[in-house]
Each structure stands twice: as C-alpha cells, then as structure tokens.
C-alpha cells in the first residue's frame, strides 16, 4: 500500500515526512520539494512521473541516501536515514539500496561479471560466494552467457540488464530506478520493464521508478505525479 497523505501506519517500509529540499543557486533558494509525504509498504512497485525539473531525481537521491534534505525525515525499515552520519549512510546504502540509472553507469574497464561483483566486494563474502552470487544475478537477467563481455561489447538493453544485476546482487531492501528505459528502444525498454516487474512480482522486491514513458509507468502498481514539490495520486490501478 502506498500513501501520500502522511498518515501511513507503522507497517511502511519507507516513510517520508514533510520533506523539503531547496537548492541555493546564485544566492537564491530554489524550492524543489515542499512538505512531501510518502509511505511505501514492502513489495510495492511505485512509478513517479512529472515534468522535467519537477524534482524526481532529487526525490530519488534523497530516498537513496545520496543527498540530505533541507528539512523533514526519511525512515527506511526503522532506520531514520536523514539522521545518519555520512559514513553510516554509506554503509546503509551498500546494504539497503540498489540503484539503476538511465545511462547504466557500468565500469567500462570491467567485465559484466566484475561489474556485478563490485557491490559484493564491500561484503564479507568469499571469492567463491561472490562468484556464485554474481553468476546467479546475471542468470536472472538472462545474461549468463555474457559474463566475460565488456560494456562496450553489449547492447544498451543488455548493459541496463547488467546494471540491474549489479543493483540486485547484494539483495538490497529496495531498488531505485531513475529513467531506466530513457535511453532504450521500445523492445529493450519492454525487456527491462518485464524484468523489473518480475523482480517485484516473483521476488517481492520493492521498486521505486522514475520515468517519462507512460508505457513504462503503466507496469507499476502505483503511479504518482510530482507537482509543485509534492506528490499527487494519479491513476491507481488496484490496491495492494
């Protein structure tokens, strides 16, 4: 269940309260988010839409602990991340968040396997365990046979699937996707959206997705619009 009225109960995985974010540019404050509230339960698939510059990326960055709000709080699985120190926040990110970007952002010098293995280097897993996990993740995205390929040897859609494997390999609490199909053709975009849908439906992953593409947004269970710094409900397909 997803709520934007700030009245979610104690069952929410993600709870955002009175979130404000302002950037100071040329001595002038630009208010991007104003008093934003959000509650997301585990296993939800939420899509955010909104005009360019409305603050979608800003919101995802805050949810992922990449940036700090001007005021307000974000609590994920009981941790108030907006109160964590920078070092703790980094460790929290490694443990709880999987990021997927529009531009895939793979390491060009590493193979598909090495890219997927990267987050596991931060864990205590042994080399053999890392190998097994990374291979399983690549298998899940259907790229087991591309294990030794470098990003430049893959198509855009394949690169994005490697990026998804990298995002899920450490089994994060939730996935944040910022326009993951923005750079892909229709077919590849559908593949990626199928994959995300499957991760939510079959593996119970909580997914928050920003997109400009209505077809992609349709695949989410809940669609929200970001307008004037706050969220408004759009077409609600069905209750969770």
């Amino acid at each position: 269940m997803v709520r934007i009225d700030g009245n979610g109960g104690g069952t929410s995985l993600i709870r955002v309260r009175n979130l404000d974010k302002a950037y100071v540019r040329g001595g002038q404050a630009v208010h991007v988010l104003r008093g934003l509230n959000l509650d997301v339960e585990e296993g939800e698939f939420v899509a955010f839409m909104g005009p360019s510059g409305s603050g979608k990326t800003t919101l995802l960055n805050l949810l992922g602990g990449l940036d700090l709000p001007s005021s307000g709080s974000i609590t994920v699985a009981g941790d108030e991340i907006t109160a964590l120190s920078a070092a703790k926040l980094t460790a929290w990110r490694a443990r709880h968040v999987g990021f997927i970007f529009q531009m895939y952002n793979l390491m060009p010098v590493l193979t598909a396997f090495q890219n997927v293995e990267l987050p596991l280097l931060l864990t205590r897993l042994s080399k053999a365990e890392r190998r097994a996990h990374a291979e399983a993740a690549l298998e899940l995205v259907g790229l087991k046979d591309r294990i030794g390929h470098y990003p430049r040897e893959l198509s855009g859609g394949q690169e994005q699937r490697v990026a998804i494997a990298r995002a899920i390999v450490a089994d994060p609490t939730f996935l944040l996707c910022d326009e993951p199909t923005g750079d892909l053709d229709r077919a590849s975009a559908d593949e990626v959206m199928d994959l995300l849908h499957r991760l939510c439906a079959d593996y119970g992953k909580t997914i928050l997705l920003v997109t400009h593409d209505p077809r992609a947004a349709e695949r989410a269970r809940t669609l929200l619009h970001l307008e004037k710094g706050a969220l408004v409900e759009a077409v609600k397909k069905h209750e969770a």
Partner: peptide, 14 residues
C-alpha cells in the same frame, strides 16, 4: 568523475 560517483553510490566509502 561519473564512475567514481557510481562507486560511492554503490557504497564504496570515501
């Protein structure tokens, strides 16, 4: 720059 930022995003410490 971008790659370093991605590493940090993934959880690489400063």
């Amino acid at each position: 720059t971008g790659e370093l930022a991605v590493l940090k995003t993934i959880g690489f410490r400063n």
